[in-house]
């Protein structure tokens, strides 16, 4: 990922009326990566995506796609982009195939063979000549993906791509998006509220809240950063255990259950605490440590409010 970024956001701002919606976002997205866009509802994810595809104007800053400004060189910039903004709303009174024909007529150089190719790719071959109103949400999502890929874009922007898909469909999409990024070098940008999804799918994640960028990190770093974790000890006498553990851990970081005790601590502390428990005569039946998931991290970073 040392090459030139495919998408560059430079101090992007959006003001609607007197309200600042986006307060200056700056980040780059490279070819070959799946980039996650994370934030609570109303954080400005969709607004940012809309600015990236030219549906909304920028109040400040600029967005470059393959070096082309989305506002001043709209046609060149947008030619490189395939997108689904919010739900994949298609013309319901047309068939899936007619919908694709519709979008094919709006770009240059997409052959009929390419249509067949994307239909095959998203697995809609059997139903493509049926009207979209008969499609399930998952099928519409696939058709949405097909129209986004039709002109072989180098940037793919998907708002909630797994919305409405069944678990098998989600796995398929996830696999497929990774393929697009790794094999074809496309920059895939996804927004999702399914944080566990993003953890599995994304290479890097940007978190925005209230229109501000909180951070961009690789998914791995993101999950593993912060060495504190919750450790659960299954014990016979939680009250006695608390007394023992309180030598090492502050009281407010300890929670008691019926037959267990939970305490937040660093990994290195676990053997020490265990030894103390044994010395104090508390029977320990089991120890489990949970790594923080992206979800916990996300809640932590965004303050746990207003999450979907």
């Amino acid at each position: 990922m040392s090459q030139k970024p495919l998408v560059e956001l430079k101090d992007v701002k959006k003001r609607i009326g007197k309200k600042d919606i986006i307060h200056g976002l700056t980040f780059d997205i490279y070819g070959g990566e799946v980039f996650g866009f994370l934030g609570p509802n109303g954080a400005g994810k969709t607004t940012t995506i809309r600015m990236m595809v030219g549906l909304m104007s920028l109040s400040g800053g600029q967005i470059l796609i393959k070096g082309k400004n989305i506002e001043s060189h709209y046609k060149q910039a947008i030619s490189e982009v395939g997108a689904i903004v919010e739900n994949p709303e298609m013309y319901k009174f047309l068939t899936g195939y007619q919908n694709l024909i519709h979008y094919r007529r709006m770009v240059k150089g997409v052959s009929k063979g390419r249509i067949a190719e994307v239909i095959e790719l998203v697995g809609l071959t059997n139903r493509i000549h049926e009207k979209v109103k008969t499609y399930s949400l998952g099928m519409r999502q696939r058709l949405g993906l097909a129209q986004a890929l039709l002109h072989s874009p180098s940037v793919l922007i998907l708002d909630e791509p797994t919305n409405g898909l069944d678990p098998a469909g989600i796995r398929e999409i996830r696999y497929y998006l990774r393929q697009l990024a790794e094999k074809e070098g496309i920059a895939v940008i996804v927004s999702s509220h399914l944080l566990s999804e993003m953890e599995l799918m994304c290479d890097r994640i940007a978190i925005i809240q209230n229109g501000k960028l909180i951070g961009v990190q690789s998914t791995k770093e993101f999950v593993e950063s912060g060495t504190e974790r919750k450790v659960r000890f299954l014990v016979d006498d939680p009250a006695a255990a608390r007394h023992a553990v309180s030598h090492h851990v502050k009281a407010e970081r300890i929670t008691l259950g019926n037959e267990y005790l939970e305490a937040e601590m660093e990994r290195e502390m676990i053997p020490e605490v265990t030894a103390t428990l044994v010395v104090e005569g508390v029977k320990v039946y089991g120890i489990s440590s949970e790594t923080k998931t992206l979800e916990d991290k996300f809640l932590e970073v965004t303050g746990g409010k207003e999450i979907v």
């Binding site: 595809v53 030219g54 549906l55 709209y74 046609k75 060149q76 947008i78 030619s79 982009v81 997108a83 689904i84 903004v85 919010e86 739900n87 994949p88 709303e89 298609m90 013309y91 319901k92 979008y103 709006m106 770009v107 240059k108 949405g144 129209q147």
Partner: peptide
């Protein structure tokens, strides 16, 4: 009202 405007306007057509 169909919501299709979003997909219609993100093409290389003014």
């Amino acid at each position: 009202s169909w919501g299709t405007i979003k997909l219609l306007l993100i093409r290389p057509v003014s």
